[in-house]
């Protein structure tokens, strides 16, 4: 808790979602989502499977379209305008459950691809940045290997580094540790905690409650496509308000 208090939250709005609804065909996945994320905030989203957590954070960088309401990221509203989408995507990094590294490129190439083609950074500079972030996630020696030659935890750390190379102002994580073996989870979480301490704005879908307690300013609980409860982690875990939250917490903390 002490650490979480150290990290400051500014009063600048990073993400503003108002009255957002989304449907897959007839299926109402996201229902009336309202949410404000301040710069420097670290938010953990949890909830049962199929509750729409992934869909929600994928809407934030427009991997999914929403049909009603407004999403404003860093002052840019997400509409069909390609320029806005490009702008938001280069500001927002995303880490996936299954890493999604590019298997035909070396680790270094994975890291430099987007800076070179999107940010138009000279190759040498891009490689220096890449090596910097690789050292930060503690695997600089793997730079010339291919993703298939790395362990799951290493791959996920590379994926984090790959996003960081774009110097994003916001990071989205979609269950970054749930495809990993227990002994690899820690190395990835450590990386994420380090990132949080540096003041990165983070939205993280995860069921790692230890992580939530250590770094989150806020925990959001979703069910049936809606935000059911949100609160500071301490209160969220010690004093849940809604029945659904209680049930969910008893299930995941129970064993």
């Amino acid at each position: 808790m002490a650490e979480a208090a150290k990290m400051q939250v500014s009063d600048e709005v990073a993400i503003q979602i108002t009255g957002m609804n989304k449907w897959y065909g007839q299926f109402h996945v996201l229902r009336d989502i309202n949410m404000t994320v301040m710069r420097g905030e670290r938010i953990v989203i949890c909830g049962p499977s199929g509750s729409g957590k992934s869909t929600l954070i994928r809407c934030i960088n427009r991997l999914e379209e929403h049909q009603q309401g407004q999403i404003i990221v860093d002052g840019t509203e997400l509409t069909n305008d390609l320029k806005n989408i490009d702008k938001v995507r280069s500001e927002v990094g995303m880490v996936f459950q299954h890493f999604n590294l590019f298997p035909h490129l070396t680790i270094l190439e994975n890291l430099t691809l987007a800076p070179i083609w999107v940010r138009k950074v000279p190759k040498k500079e891009a490689e220096e940045t890449a090596m910097y972030f690789l050292s930060k996630v503690k695997i600089p020696e793997q730079a010339h290997k291919y993703p298939g030659q790395l362990s799951g935890g290493q791959q996920q750390r590379v994926a984090i580094a790959r996003s960081l190379c774009m110097k994003p102002r916001i990071m989205l994580f979609d269950e970054p540790t749930s495809a990993l073996d227990p002994e690899m989870i820690k190395e990835v979480l450590d990386t994420m905690i380090q990132l949080a301490q540096e003041g990165m704005t983070m939205l993280c879908v995860t069921h790692e409650m230890g992580f939530a307690q250590a770094v989150a300013n806020r925990v959001i609980f979703m069910d049936q496509g809606q935000i059911v409860e949100q609160n500071a982690p301490k209160e969220f875990f010690s004093n849940p308000q809604s029945e659904r939250t209680k049930l969910f917490l008893s299930q995941i903390l129970g064993h």
Binding site: N61, D86, G93, H98, N100, L113, A114, W117
Partner: peptide, 20 residues
């Protein structure tokens, strides 16, 4: 996931097709 990762990095669809 491959194209999604590329999109999330800000690559445009035609670049994604060509590079990824």
């Amino acid at each position: 996931g491959q194209s999604e990762a590329a999109f999330a990095l800000g690559l445009r669809p035609n670049r994604t097709t060509r590079l990824i």
